[in-house]
């Protein structure tokens, strides 16, 4: 049975999205991508450092990956829109992860500005994947604004604290007719599996892989966990019974 995830007209077989930040050395990225099986890789847009000519991250990302530039650094919708346009001008596709953060303490996304940016960019033909705090009404508005998927956070970015927002993310999965991609906070493969088992369409992992002692092995572990969770979700888990047996029948009258 084929199980593909379609976003923005692209069919994805892997449901693990990979972030490319925080690696000790970028040259490990090709091995990480290969081990994880990821097809979508995020990158950030930055001013060229005039003092030291950085090596280009793109040289480390396999050409057949879908590149998803993020708008990190944006504090307002306007800044996110500007960054997204710059990213698209690089000629690497039209996907964008909107990330608007105006809170430096917890790094929580600004849903309101994110909705505004989504509306503008979806209107310009971008495939927009907004990173957001899991709130049902905000997610509905993002869907209405033209988002291609919704990316709620599992816990604050970079914390590896896991799926703390589980109940809220579950509501999004139930109510929003778009792929729900759990982004941020997933620290262990078991948590990725949990999100997938619950019905998330994909998960985005960066810190947990990049900061692992052996990023390549961890990437492989995440790839397997995402697949296992997805397979469990599709195979309709058996019943968890709430009670052993009914105390008094409610339908006895039908046979009287």
């Amino acid at each position: 049975m084929s199980d593909v995830l379609e976003i923005g007209g692209i069919e994805l077989r892997s449901r693990l999205f990979l972030g490319s930040g925080k690696f000790a050395a970028n040259k490990v990225i090709p091995d990480v991508v290969a081990a994880s099986g990821a097809q979508v890789v995020t990158v950030a847009v930055r001013r060229v450092d005039m003092a030291s000519a950085d090596e280009n991250i793109l040289t480390h990302i396999p050409k057949d990956c879908v590149l998803m530039p993020n708008t990190s650094g944006a504090r307002t919708a306007e800044e996110a829109v500007r960054i997204a346009r710059l990213a698209r001008a690089a000629g690497c596709g039209n996907w964008v992860k909107i990330e608007v953060i105006s809170d430096n303490r917890y790094l929580l996304p600004d849903n309101f500005e994110t909705i505004k940016a989504t509306e503008v960019l979806a209107g310009e033909g971008f495939v927009v994947l907004p990173y957001m705090s899991p709130d049902l009404m905000a997610a509905k508005r993002l869907a209405d604004a033209g988002a291609a998927a919704i990316m709620p956070l599992g816990s604050p970015i970079g914390t590896n604290r896991g799926l703390k927002t589980k109940e809220l993310v579950r509501i999004l999965i139930e109510e929003i007719p778009l792929p729900i991609v759990v982004d941020a906070g997933i620290g262990r493969p078991s948590e990725a599996a949990e999100a997938m088992e619950m019905g998330a369409a994909a998960v985005l992992v960066n810190t947990a892989i990049a900061t692992a002692g052996d990023p390549v092995a961890m990437a492989r572990a995440f790839g397997m966990a995402v697949e296992a969770g997805r397979m469990a979700h599709l195979s309709s888990p058996g019943a968890i019974l709430q009670y052993a047996n009914a105390s008094s029948p409610l339908t006895g009258f039908l046979s009287e």
């Binding site: 709430q242 009670y243 009914a246 029948p249 409610l250 339908t251 039908l254």
Partner: peptide, 11 residues
């Protein structure tokens, strides 16, 4: 399974 459905519906 009407009884099982009824129990859950009631709950």
């Amino acid at each position: 399974f009407l009884e099982e459905m009824a129990q859950k519906a009631h709950r």
